[in-house]
Design a protein around this nucleic acid. Structure first.
Length: 337
DNA sequence: GCAAATATCGCCATTACATCA
DNA sequence: GTTGATGTAATGGCGATATTT
């Protein structure tokens, strides 16, 4: 599954695969999301390691969040409101970029596919950002002090450097100034956009992460962490729902058990009062599927005779769901107090 | 072809911080 | 102004998987 984010007039400047969807009635500036579907989770994982299959997906364009932020730092520079992507015939450069791309070489050999596209993307993003992005730009639409710390992973950088960078981004408690990094809260717009992205897909491949981070003026690691925490919240909520459901099931079963115990007690009392009733050979009890009460087969057959289409003594339920209780209940009834 | 080493990713538990009552 | 509760960004560890050596 592919998720592409683009900023600008959703009715224009779309690649051919996006042109399938009806354009918005009136041109306007907003976020566009291109979502490639038709791929399983495993396939998606696979795709994240091999971006070459992007063009086999079908895409769906979504218009999202007209209030979504338009980081000025992502566009052509000070005073330019439209992002650079708008001028491109393909507003989803990272998507187009890998249509038919070949595995790249690193130091004379093929690098891991999971690294290369990411590296290339990071480089591209970095390149784009280098000329347009000002990490701590005061002109940013976000009331935050985030910088795009999209690193230059990829060609020309060693894996050690890449690793050190990830470790740095994952584990460091100190920023470049040596001061303890404060916890930063995402703006409502950023959270809303991430939420919309999460609704479309709960995991991101490296390129989507980069693209999303660029759109939101966040570090890719922040996007990654947000999705991880969001998945955890979803799971927790689902666990609570499941727990509640099981609790209700338990209560129902407890009540049912209580009812059956009482019924058994009644039957035993009945046996004591009318012992001849139990002298008949192997009485067959049938469980009513709707009311779940056991009834003697005599009653059942009498009713069944009048309603030949069902074995239900009360005229309801399905024959196949009736529970025939033989022997065991007979024993239970016989071994009463 | 196989095993060890390495890289990457997601999940999880936990911490740390911001916000609110 | 202080405090405790709550929400959530961020961290570190671990296992699974893929790739490289």
């Amino acid at each position: 599954m592919e998720l592409a984010l683009s900023l600008g007039d959703s009715s224009q400047s779309l690649p051919p695969f996006l042109a399938k969807t009806p354009p918005t009635p009136a041109p306007r500036l907003d976020f566009c999301m291109a979502l490639g579907v038709g791929m399983s989770g495993e396939a998606m994982k696979e795709t994240s390691r091999d971006r070459g299959s992007s063009n086999s997906s079908s895409f769906l364009q979504l218009d999202l969040l007209p209030f979504s932020p338009v980081p000025r730092s992502c566009n052509g520079g000070p005073g330019v409101d439209r992002p650079a992507d708008l001028s491109s015939p393909f507003p989803l450069p990272w998507l187009v970029e890998h249509l038919g791309s070949e595995p790249e070489l690193f130091n004379g050999r093929t690098k891991r596919l999971s690294i290369n596209p990411f590296a290339a993307a990071a480089e591209d993003v970095d390149d784009a950002g280098a000329q347009s992005s000002s990490p701590n730009s005061a002109a940013s639409s976000f009331p935050m002090d985030f910088g795009i710390v999209v690193s230059g992973r990829g060609r020309g950088r060693s894996e050690t450097e890449v690793d050190a960078e990830r470790d740095c981004s994952r584990g460091s408690d100190e920023d470049e100034n040596g001061s303890t990094r404060k916890k930063l809260r995402l703006s409502k717009e950023q959270s809303a956009f991430l939420e919309e992205s999460f609704k479309e897909q709960s995991t991101l491949n490296p390129k989507q992460k980069i693209a999303l981070a660029k759109q939101l003026n966040l570090r890719p690691r922040q996007v990654e962490v947000w999705f991880q925490n969001r998945r955890a919240r979803t799971k927790l909520k689902q666990t609570e729902i499941d727990c509640e459901y099981l609790k209700r099931c338990c209560e129902t079963l407890t009540e049912e058990n209580r009812r059956l115990q009482k019924e058994l007690q009644d039957l035993r009392a009945l046996k004591t009062a009318r012992p001849f009733y139990m002298q008949s050979p192997a009485t067959t009890l049938t469980m009513c599927p709707s009311c779940e009460r056991s009834v003697p087969a005599a009653t059942q057959s009498a009713v069944a005779a009048s309603k030949p289409t069902t074995t239900h003594p009360f005229g309801g339920g399905q024959p196949g769901k009736s529970h025939r209780v033989q022997g065991q209940q007979q024993e239970q009834l016989s071994s009463g107090p």
